[in-house]
Design a protein around this nucleic acid. Sequence first.
DNA 1: CGGCGCATGTAACTTGTTACATGATTCC
DNA 2: GGAATCATGTAACAAGTTACATGCGCCG
Lengths: 201, 201
Amino acid sequence: MYLSDTSNRYMVMNIKKNKTRYVILGLVSEEPLSGYDINKIIQMRFKFFWQESYGQIYPELARLENEGLISLVPQDTETKRARNVYQITDAGREELRNWLLLPPEKEARRYEILLKLYFGNLIPDEQLMQYLSSFRQNHDQELQILKEVEAELKGILDQHENHIYILMTVYLGLKLNQAYVEWADEIIGMLKKLKDGKEKS
Amino acid sequence: MYLSDTSNRYMVMNIKKNKTRYVILGLVSEEPLSGYDINKIIQMRFKFFWQESYGQIYPELARLENEGLISLVPQDTETKRARNVYQITDAGREELRNWLLLPPEKEARRYEILLKLYFGNLIPDEQLMQYLSSFRQNHDQELQILKEVEAELKGILDQHENHIYILMTVYLGLKLNQAYVEWADEIIGMLKKLKDGKEKS
DNA sequence: CGGCGCATGTAACTTGTTACATGATTCC
DNA sequence: GGAATCATGTAACAAGTTACATGCGCCG
């Protein structure tokens, strides 16, 4: 169907924004997986840079199957629990490839803590310090986890050709969390000084 | 109306997620502003950690006025261009304060570039390097801008009590962008080595 | 035999983006 | 007089979250 208008003003946008499908395609491109598996993997391995919910995964799996980009793998014996395991198709591999070859979009972020800090003169400094120290703690925890992941990955670098790429993502996690922790420490220091100054006057 | 059920299963969620309203409240708490002004300020001052669009600002302004959290400022002479300028009310100040006193939520982020890198073994290394160098360039640019902002802010630190807080947000921007740039350089180096290794074998 | 984890899914909602419509005013 | 920018807004999407419903199987 060429040049069909469908009388929809908004047809113009052919830029795919839905990234969920590519996460799924990427994951099933490595091995057949169920929706449940996919969720677990994202929770474990992507935690620090990506998140999805069942509310997106299951409908997307259905859509992908409908489009022929993935297909159900027939499960063997009847004794097993019901599981819908999907594998990628050639068309799916093609779709994934096309997306991977598209330059990544600039990521838009929203840092609630910065917003609160921006309006910092409206909150007591102690409160801000509390936010910052829990922020620091969170990121320090993530930092420790990532350090373990790094060590583990380095030990099995030659076991799969994608391990090196995973390690690269971990490096950013390390850098960013390091930056968060350092920043929080500096700001807490600044706030302490500010508070002392205010109390003296 | 106490304890009314309204027969809606989903009434339970009373946790406010809509942050747009607080950005608006925060900004008009400093000075009366129009929707247009608010958009411009967010574009300029919040660019690196927050974004909004007219599609959210205008409807939210209407809602806030409806709830009595902001009010229209009568514009003087009739010669001027039509402008709806809003000021914060006491109720609005209260609402803003309540939100500021709530601990910030953990920010969920999605780094498309990490997702692509994660599946890096499916893309040619040259392509990845291109993504990374444009990523590097973007963040380096932001870094330069933030350095200017930093210098500027330091010069006018005593002119308003919130300048110090704004500076603190800038510091995070500096740290993060520095981390991005350094990381990109390291990864590009790793990819070069990888490529050389592959070509030799 | 009870509870935890496996497993799949949907309905209702909130949030955010994009394209479009419309017109006034300022400045060159 | 025409371009840029000021200025406000909406309709139609797309995307993402949350709460709920449901049931099986495995392990202690």
